[in-house]
């Protein structure tokens, strides 16, 4: 009795394992983590769907790798620990390749690189974007980003305020609590195009410091996951060459975001 029950349980288990194995062999499954609060790179539409440059690039890469991809949204603060904990396999969320992060995750080659910029209200008396120009001012940035690190290291005479997502610092520059905000030029440019963004203008772009910003924006994978990293690198190369990247670039921006 006892033995036969065990056999009865083991048979479907073996069958399940076999079919799962077969499905695995057919196509690669990749879970992609993204933030979903960083327009125009990755954000949720009003009906809850992901859109943006990162998302389109991710879809193109998956198509290139013949992988079945699934998106997972995750708060920016916890996005690296979630990758390490296996909630997803790759982060495609406009993450700069920098030294601090390289200690925790591996990066692919860059898939775009745009400079940071500073936005100020239209009637602001801020003339430029140097430390002196911003002395005594309140600057907003999204926390745990390269931009916040840059702001805290560079604008030591200013009050740097850190926000959970880009949405909140936008609210605070509109209502006048902030004198300036720092973020990627493309993100800020997109914000200025909206009705809310009518308050503000770009004061100038900054020269990214290699030490903080690294060579650009890459895809993060778990340390040692070389298989996926190499496949992604090959896919980035392929979409750069076959024109798919150019198509996505043109869909979103009027200029080249890849950099040189």
């Amino acid at each position: 009795m006892r033995i036969s029950r065990r056999v009865a349980l083991a048979l479907p288990a073996a069958f399940l394992a076999f079919t799962l194995g077969a499905a695995n062999a057919q196509g690669m499954k990749v879970k992609i983590g993204t933030e979903g609060a960083y327009p125009p790179f990755n954000n949720l539409t009003s009906d809850g769907k992901l859109e943006g440059f990162d998302i389109d690039i991710a879809r193109a890469l998956c198509e290139e790798m013949k992988a079945e991809c699934e998106f997972v949204t995750q708060d920016w603060d916890g996005i690296i620990p979630a990758l390490q904990a296996g909630k997803f396999d790759a982060i495609i969320a406009s993450m700069s390749i920098n030294e601090d992060r390289k200690k925790e995750v591996d990066f692919t080659d860059k898939y775009y690189n745009t400079p940071p910029a500073i936005v100020v209200p239209k009637d602001s008396d801020i003339k430029g974007v140097t430390k002196e120009d911003l002395a005594g001012k309140t600057i907003g940035a999204q926390g745990s980003t390269t931009h916040s690190t840059y702001a805290e290291k560079t604008f030591t005479d200013s009050d740097v305020k850190l926000y959970p997502t880009s949405e909140e610092y936008k609210l605070d520059i509109i209502n006048g609590r902030l004198d300036a905000v720092i973020d990627d030029v493309v993100v800020l440019d997109e914000f200025l195009k909206t009705d809310d963004g009518a308050c503000c203008k770009i004061a100038g772009t900054l020269t990214p410091i290699e030490e903080i910003y690294g060579p650009g924006i890459g895809i993060a994978v778990r340390k040692g996951d070389n298989d996926l990293r190499e496949k992604l690198n090959a896919a980035i190369k392929a979409i750069r060459e076959n024109g798919k990247y150019k198509e996505i670039n043109e869909k979103h921006f009027s200029f080249d975001v890849y950099g040189d």
């Binding site: 603060d77 690296i80 601090d100 200690k103 926390g143 745990s144 690190t149 850190l162």
Partner: peptide, 9 residues
Amino acid sequence: TRRAYSQTF
């Protein structure tokens, strides 16, 4: 704490 974590992991 969150800031320290995001810088040190």
